[in-house]
């Protein structure tokens, strides 16, 4: 149906497209470490050596773990396997809450303690009106 030249062009362009895709896939595969925005407490625990550079750790704020005093706020980030204590001086975003996602940026003091310089709240994919949320809570 199509001429030989058209078929050849189609083959050539697809081949180039596929090889560039493969190359980019491999680049991302090897850069995996840098593409992730944050590490989990488990990954921090399994680090071969303690990171001295700035690091981001993300997970859930453990229930009943937020302690505040005049100077700083302390809480625990958990991925339900391992935990990490975070201390932070400053104001936290509105959505920072117990049992919700959080990303803390700062410096590791040891494998289970992070001195944060920035707290980001992570929003999840659930959107609903307040009444629905109340109803869901009651059903629990």
């Amino acid at each position: 149906m199509y001429g030989k030249k058209v078929k050849l062009r189609a083959f050539f362009i697809l081949l180039i497209f596929l090889s560039v895709s493969l190359a980019i896939f491999l680049v991302f595969k090897s850069l995996e470490e840098n593409v992730v925005y944050f590490k989990s407490p488990t990954e921090v625990k399994n680090l071969p050596e303690l990171e001295t550079k700035k690091i981001r750790v993300g997970g859930m704020v453990k229930k009943n773990s937020i302690r505040t005093n005049e100077l700083e706020i302390n809480f625990i980030i958990t991925d339900y396997k391992n935990e990490l204590v975070v201390s932070f001086k400053g104001s936290v975003p509105n959505l920072f809450e117990e049992g919700k996602g959080v990303v803390a940026e700062g410096f590791l003091k040891d494998r289970s303690y992070l001195k944060a310089i920035k707290i980001l709240a992570k929003h999840d994919e659930n959107y609903m009106p307040p009444e629905v949320n109340e109803a869901l809570k009651e059903n629990k």
Partner: peptide, 19 residues
């Protein structure tokens, strides 16, 4: 990857998590 951005709420194959 782990991102700050939330995952998709409107899905064709999985449940949609938006009211």
């Amino acid at each position: 990857w782990s991102t700050l951005h939330q995952p998709a709420s409107v899905n064709l194959l999985k449940d949609t998590t938006i009211h």
